[in-house]
Design a protein around this nucleic acid. Structure first.
Lengths: 240, 240
DNA sequence: TAAACTAGTTACTTGAAAGTAAATTCTGGA
DNA sequence: TCCAGAATTTACTTTCAAGTAACTAGTTTA
């Protein structure tokens, strides 16, 4: 129960006992071992994410994860605190990737529509990868309270980014007048859903799928033409 | 491991003993008791669905469900075979409702676009109700194998209905040229997502949300008419 | 009224998976 | 060459929820 568990990759200050080791400079390169350790922790997370996505969080036991890494369960506890932490870390990584991608899209500049397009692209790409998939398959309720709130915060941050871009695009005139909140949800929903049905083994490449989804969302269901909203309202004829 | 477990509502052993009861005619109206029983089973399912949606399937114990119905756990087993059956029944109901709704939309007639609109409406409505929400929140992997395949079958039936309508709409000219498969997924995704974020307590009514989502999907993100980029580029004929 | 079924309870068994303690093996450096 | 700490294992405890057995109180009906 020693309250020290892991403390991440922090340099950790030397208290009295460590004196013998002559205060190894924390500025040196992260020793080969530390890198290894980090790599292993990552392997745990990635494997876990894959299995969670395939079989669901609760249906994946730590023994399963360990087995698929060719180690035993207690080994996992050497790298993570507990099962919930694994899930949280996975979702967090997905979230970080998304947030970073959004930031990059912004840096890239362009008008609101360009930026929105870039964000959509980024989001769709992430959502078909292990961590991103966790992000959208795992309901918030699976993760226990301290983290749940934090998670929701980050998710709504993503949502907000979309919403802001939509709003700006509307002002700009490049995006159709709409309630940005709803539009953002529609976009996020359609893209998130990709992570539910897309299979790399299928006949489409991820890039193809993404491209087409973006086109569908941007262009809408209705035929584009000079016609106003309620186009093509031909009644009477019933096709067989 | 006695292989008899429950055998549902079957008469069970006592073959000779039944003679005394003079074979009650099964053609009569479903006695008040049977109705009661059915009503109670339904209550179990509805309560379960609500709780599954709120807290997740695995985080909801049978004791929880029982408690919220003011009975004890074994009572539940009087109405359902086991926990998995509850989940399956919930999802199934959601699926049935959807399929029925789609059929009704077809009966209602109209061109492909009209029918698609009706289907979208129906689907969105279902997805914010308990059983429909189960349908989209529960991953297939949660339900064990015999049923899983059946479930997937029904889900893809829904998907197919959307896909067919889109394809017809494209031929009709009322729907933008696209890959119907992708378009159907985009539609289903955006609508399903509603079930993830919509809260009845919020500032929008369900109908408002649905209406706006349909508009967003149908119209698309980009400004209509005289839009920049790749907007209106209809070559030959325009739809009447 | 008693037989027989319905609906429910209390009190239990069981099993699976999370998590832990303590022993063991591996490895790099003085 | 040996040792200290890193990494991993074996073998266990714990917990919790699913599921069951066996009894009981009500209700119908013959």
């Amino acid at each position: 129960m020693t309250a020290e568990h892991k403390s991440g990759a922090q340099p950790g200050k030397a208290r009295g006992a460590q004196r013998a080791r002559a205060v190894v400079s924390p500025w040196g390169a992260p020793s080969a071992r530390e890198q290894q350790r980090e790599a292993k922790r990552n392997a745990v997370l990635t494997t876990a994410a894959r299995m969670f996505n395939e079989r669901g969080f609760h249906a994946t036991s730590l023994d399963d994860i360990a087995a698929s890494l060719n180690v035993t369960k207690p080994t996992l506890y050497y790298y993570v605190k507990n099962k919930d932490e694994i899930l949280l870390a996975c979702v967090n990584k997905g979230l970080r990737m998304t947030l970073d991608g959004i930031e990059a899209s912004r840096q890239a500049g362009g008008n609101a529509l360009d930026q929105l397009r870039a964000c959509m692209q980024v989001y769709a790409e992430i959502v078909v990868q292990p961590f991103g998939m966790c992000l959208i398959r795992v309901g918030d309720e699976e993760v226990p309270e301290p983290s749940r709130t934090e998670l929701r915060r980050m998710k709504s941050e993503i949502d907000l980014a979309f919403r802001r871009l939509v709003a700006r695009g509307v002002q700009e005139g490049s995006i159709a007048p709409c309630d940005p909140k709803i539009m953002a949800f529609v976009i996020a929903g359609a893209l998130s859903w990709i992570g539910r049905w897309y299979q790399p083994e299928g006949s489409y490449s991820a890039q193809q799928v993404i491209e087409q989804c973006l086109a569908a969302l941007l262009g809408g269901v209705l035929t584009r033409a000079s016609g106003p909203k309620r186009a093509a309202r031909k009644s009477g004829r019933t096709p067989s």
